[in-house]
């Protein structure tokens, strides 16, 4: 019984530190999510203009940033950019690195959402005199965004997990605090178990929401 009481107080004191890291994890997640979705939307819409050189550039961006490990990208942002005189702090470096790689994924997500719509929609919009811009804004995107919600949700789950990599560039998020805490207290097994639980608490609601969306869509079809 005494052991369990001890375990409880240890967990409580670890959690106090880890939760401060959770705030940073949420910040990195939100920051890079906004950046990735913005890049993705802009590039996916730009692709529909069918300008050859532009499309080639977008394809290269997507292929390169999806093929690079997140860790490599973060190191380039944090250590590599010092070569050209840019010194980023860990937090912006993590947000930019994760945002750039996420942008490539989001471009693909939005592209498939837009191309899933029947081309008749675009033609109908043109027939009633809408400009391509207005057709995109009022006809295509509202429908495409609904289709892309489940994959975007999955991307967000992956992103929360990927923020753990930011610990390698010393961003003070959950895992970074856990590493410091475990060198101070040597209570490694318990600390990393708590970390796993914290990530589960953050990803679980999102995963349930995505499941719900997918079930709804299956019932619809």
């Amino acid at each position: 019984m005494e052991q369990f009481g001890d375990l409880f107080t240890r967990s409580a004191s670890h959690l106090e530190v880890l939760l401060q890291g959770a705030g940073v994890t949420v910040m990195i997640t939100l920051g890079s999510f906004v950046m990735a979705v913005t890049i993705g939307l802009v590039l996916a819409v730009a692709r529909t203009w069918k300008i050859r050189p532009l499309n080639a550039l977008i394809a290269i961006y997507v292929e390169v940033f999806r093929g690079l490990p997140t860790l490599t990208l973060l190191f380039i942002c944090y250590f590599g950019l010092t070569y050209v005189g840019i010194k980023l702090n860990p937090l912006p470096a993590a947000i930019i690195g994760l945002g750039l790689s996420g942008g490539a994924y989001c471009t693909e997500i939005f592209r498939s959402g837009i191309s899933a719509l029947h081309h008749g929609q675009r033609e109908a919009a043109a027939a009633i005199g809408m400009t391509p811009m207005r057709a995109m804004r009022f006809v295509i995107l509202p429908q495409a965004l609904r289709i892309t919600l489940p994959p975007l949700g999955n991307y967000a789950i992956g992103l929360i997990k990927d923020t753990a990599v930011a610990s390698a560039v010393a961003a003070p998020e959950i895992l970074f605090r856990a590493r410091n805490l475990s060198t101070e207290t040597f209570d490694t097994a318990l600390i990393y178990l708590l970390v796993a639980v914290l990530y589960l608490v953050m990803t679980f609601p999102l995963a349930r929401w995505v499941d719900h969306l997918e079930k709804k869509r299956k019932a619809w079809q």
Partner: peptide, 23 residues
């Protein structure tokens, strides 16, 4: 499946590499 998909791979690596030796 729920746990494997909700916990970062890096945390699992740390758990195995740093968490198991004390045990």
């Amino acid at each position: 499946i729920e746990i494997a998909r909700g916990v970062p791979a890096l945390v699992i690596l740390f758990l195995l590499y740093f968490g198991l030796p004390p045990l």
